[in-house]
Amino acid sequence: MIDFHHVALEYPGEATLALDDINLHIKKGEFVYLIGHSGAGKTSLMHLLIRRQRPSKGQIYVLNEPLSRYRGARVALHRRRIGMVFQDNLLLEHLSAWQNVAFALRVAGLPKRQWSDRVGEVLELVGLEHRASHLPRQLSQGEQQRVAIARAIVARPPLLLCDEPTGNLDPDTTDQVIRLLHEINLQGTTILLATHAHEVVEHFRRRTLTLRKGRLIRDDPYGGYAL
């Protein structure tokens, strides 16, 4: 699903590498945590996966295709095959929960007649079918994050990237969101989740990758939080 071969990332004007000689392989259907301190390179790695950044060195394969070949319209097509959830949920304020989720289908170019079933299905999955007509400001932080997750999975991407999705949530809501992500994983979606929340990594043990100063220092198949 994801392959990194000797990947390095250097931001212009910065002395140190954001990512240094990263090698990793994530199989289809895996649930993988990505942990590390702030500035360790978690978000940089995510940005490489959605082709927001290009590596200074090395090769990246996502869904068995090399990202280095992607330009312009192909980058857009690539992103449609990946779901993304962020710490700031990035919901569009003027759209309701239903419309925010459907927006991903519009961008993906799915016919309108398919929207209703798909959006209803994912809103039910995240437990927000009764809040479908609410605007983001009328929803709690946890609900907003669940809408963001629904938007990320509505186009049924094989890969879901989550960058600190529980960063703004209280422990109970965090628990709900992580359970939801595991449920989505059980349906076959590969998930890479970058997080600071050690209780999450400890409680829901899965393979854990640890980054420190841009280097992958640990790849623990049994999980656990150790920086």
């Binding site: 959605i50 312009g72 319209a73 857009a76 097509l77 690539h78 992103r79 449609r80 095959r81 990946i82 993304m84 990035l90 569009l92 927006f103 991903a104 961008v107 993906a108 938007r151």
Partner: peptide, 13 residues
């Protein structure tokens, strides 16, 4: 902000 979201969701130019 909306354009940034569109881009991340894979909207073309």
């Amino acid at each position: 902000d909306e354009i940034a979201v569109m881009r991340l969701l894979g909207a073309g130019r």
